[in-house]
């Protein structure tokens, strides 16, 4: 089947998509957007987190057909006008990035948290990120990054 959708603001079409194919597969293997990672393929790790019509989802659990005519935003679409999003900036600055495989999912999840809750408490950050597994960092620096991004976003309306 043919799937048409908007990805990072651009209209995209994928042909010969099998009905059981995931949105993650279409993004990574058909549309040249491998930023979203495949680490468990069953919604446990959050590495494939993308926005679907503005809500964060595990792209591995969304059938590609469900994304028909809808809007997807991936980690590749967060930076605008050659400038990193404050969340991306804070992740690199704070040392929240190690192997980088969980990073795209965490960046999207943290981006969504700060959109909904601009000044989150530590408990809110931990809860929001609890579905994104990281095996390297122990999460401390990721929390630092989210706090820093929140502060910066609050300072620049």
């Amino acid at each position: 089947m043919r799937v048409s959708l908007t990805v990072n603001g651009r209209h995209r079409t994928a042909d010969d998509v099998w009905e059981g194919e995931s949105l993650l597969y279409v993004l990574r293997e058909r549309l040249g957007l491998p930023g979203s990672k495949n680490a468990c393929e069953q919604g446990e790790c959050g590495s494939c987190t993308v926005y679907l019509d503005g809500l964060p989802v595990c792209a591995c659990l969304v059938a590609a057909g469900q994304a028909e005519s809808r809007e997807v935003r991936t980690v590749e679409g967060l930076a605008g006008d050659g400038r990193l999003d404050p969340v991306q900036e804070a992740f690199t600055e704070c040392g929240a990035v190690q192997c980088g495989f969980c990073t795209p999912g965490l960046v999207v999840q943290a981006h969504d948290l700060l959109n909904r809750t601009p000044r989150p408490t530590d408990a809110q950050i931990r809860e929001a990120l609890a579905g994104n597994l990281c095996r390297c960092t122990g999460y401390e620096k990721i929390l630092d990054a989210v706090r820093l991004a929140a502060t910066r976003k609050a300072a620049t309306p």
Binding site: G35, V75, E76, L78, T92, T103
Partner: peptide, 8 residues
């Protein structure tokens, strides 16, 4: 770091 946070 930048390559990793942008998915590149």
């Amino acid at each position: 770091g930048v390559e990793k946070v942008t998915g590149r």
